[in-house]
Amino acid sequence: MKKITFIIGLTLLATNIFGQNTSTEYGLKAGINYSKYTPNIEIKGIDIVDFNGKFGFYLGGFVNFGFSDIIKLQPELIFAIQGTNTSQEIEIRFSPHQEPVFGELKTRITESTISIPIMLQIYPTKNFYIEIGPQLGYIVSTKEKVTDNPFPEFESPFGASEDCPNCDKFDLGASLGIGYNFTRLIGINARYYAGLIERNKTIKSSVINLGINYKL
């Protein structure tokens, strides 16, 4: 939380210092993401659920406030499909008198998320920039689907696809990225997001974004 407060403070300071001569531009952005949960779930130091990355996408819009040629502020509204892949070892006893049989159950968790990043951009050169800022998120839905069941005859206990109505909806973190504008209208951007609060008392989000910006 201290990190978020510091980033917001920098943003407000930049706004106060450079807000006298502000230029405003609007734009759209879209791209792919690679996301996962962290950390793995452990019991007594042993991983019982491993979280692995999954690919998704994002799209949205932004407003860019230029306080000078060096300092800009960019609030965004983004819709993203992200989440994680999971794997865990499960144990089945086909009868009370038989030895247990082990297998690896794999699932895919998909989140539909609305995010509001507020990025402070610093331009060391005319076209290249570094950005940092807080990001708020609201998770519209969370769905888990079994992708590999080692015991298909026991499909029912695991479920084929399930919603998670009781999962935490609010997310908060920080983003750090770089970008390059090829022209006044078109640019590329790479960004890493790290969740700073635990969701469902166990996990945090980790997302890498890569995409294209287009100014209207």
Rank of each mutant, 00 (worst) to 15 (best):
M1C: 04
V146K: 10
P165C: 12
I17D: 04
Y214D: 01
I188K: 08
L172G: 10
P117F: 03
F151W: 04
F151K: 00
K204L: 05
P165L: 11
I41T: 14
T86M: 11
T22C: 10
L185M: 13
N33H: 05
E155R: 12
R191P: 04
Q121L: 03
I43Q: 13
R184V: 00
P134W: 13
E76V: 07
G177R: 02
I92K: 05
T183D: 08
I114P: 01
V207Q: 06
Y193N: 13
I114N: 02
V101H: 07
D148R: 11
F94K: 08
K54A: 05
I92F: 03
N127L: 06
G27A: 03
P134T: 11
T202M: 10
F170C: 09
F65V: 00
L216S: 06
I178Y: 05
K29W: 00
I48W: 00
P39K: 10
P157K: 03
L105N: 06
E155T: 12
T5C: 05
I197W: 09
P100L: 09
I78S: 12
P150R: 07
T147F: 07
G19Q: 02
C164E: 04
S23R: 15
R191D: 08
C167T: 02
N166Y: 07
N85S: 14
E99Y: 13
T107S: 15
T5L: 14
G66L: 03
S95A: 14
Y34S: 09
S95E: 08
E76N: 15
D47I: 09
Q135G: 01
I41S: 14
F154V: 03
E25F: 12
I122N: 06
I186C: 14
I32W: 04
T147K: 10
G159Y: 00
G19R: 03
Y37I: 04
T38R: 15
G61R: 04
G56Y: 02
T142K: 12
F67H: 09
K3G: 03
S35W: 01
F18W: 14
T84A: 15
E153D: 12
E91S: 14
G56K: 00
N149Q: 02
N149L: 10
R184H: 10
L176W: 01
D69K: 12
T202C: 05
T125N: 14
E99W: 09
K44I: 07
I4L: 15
M1Q: 08
T202R: 09
P75H: 08
R184D: 12
K145L: 01
N16E: 09
G9R: 07
D50P: 02
F102Y: 15
I78V: 15
M1D: 07
T38G: 12
F62V: 03
N213R: 14
L73G: 06
T84Y: 02
G60D: 00
Y123K: 04
Y214C: 10
F6E: 04
G159P: 01
L120M: 11
V63P: 02
L73F: 15
N21S: 12
